[in-house]
Amino acid sequence: MNATNTSGTARIITHVKETDPMEPEVPFAEVEAVQSKEYIPVIKETLTGMIQRGLDAATKPVFNWAGRNSLFPLHWGLACCAIEFAAGFGARWDGERFGVVPRSSPRQCDLLIVNGTVTWKLSHKLITLWEQMPEPKWAIAMGNCATGGGPFRTAYSVVPGVNKLIPVDVYIAGCPPRPEAMLDGILRLERLIRERRA
């Protein structure tokens, strides 16, 4: 059909809101309303904010400890690495002894292990799943495909690295990585979370 093309130049379609440059971001009426607000609610807000911050500071180490020792990855398989992911939770490696329990709903998860090739067709679904996961959350790119496209990086349909779509904390090399490598990646992520406590 098309004689020449620049084919694989698929783009990430992010949700950019169309704004009229002539129109200010915040309507004037609303700005005035904010300025004329009485000061009591403002003080109230500041106070609750302070209490919240204090509580956060006090409980953060506890949540950090609890969170890093029970990382719940999302149970989904993309490609070859998913088989090694499954083997990592089988009888020989038993990943659950590290408190890592795969869950089927993104709402229950705090770790996204991208275990395989991500295609442009999948990219929207991947971003949706990532956004459905509650904070705090982490991502691991497992295997060469998720890290940088792997053997398929030249293909027209493959995202060359999942870090083009979501922020990645730990990269695991291998095609596919052995289950030990996957568990090592999860333990490294635990160490990272512990260091961020300070």
């Binding site: 059909m1 098309n2 020449t4 084919s7 694989g8 990086r153 030249t154 027209y156 349909s157």
Partner: peptide
């Protein structure tokens, strides 16, 4: 828009 297995469609490094 494309039909990738046509010979006029070329692959490139990302």
């Amino acid at each position: 828009r494309f039909h990738p297995l046509r010979k006029s469609f070329e692959l490139h490094e990302p």
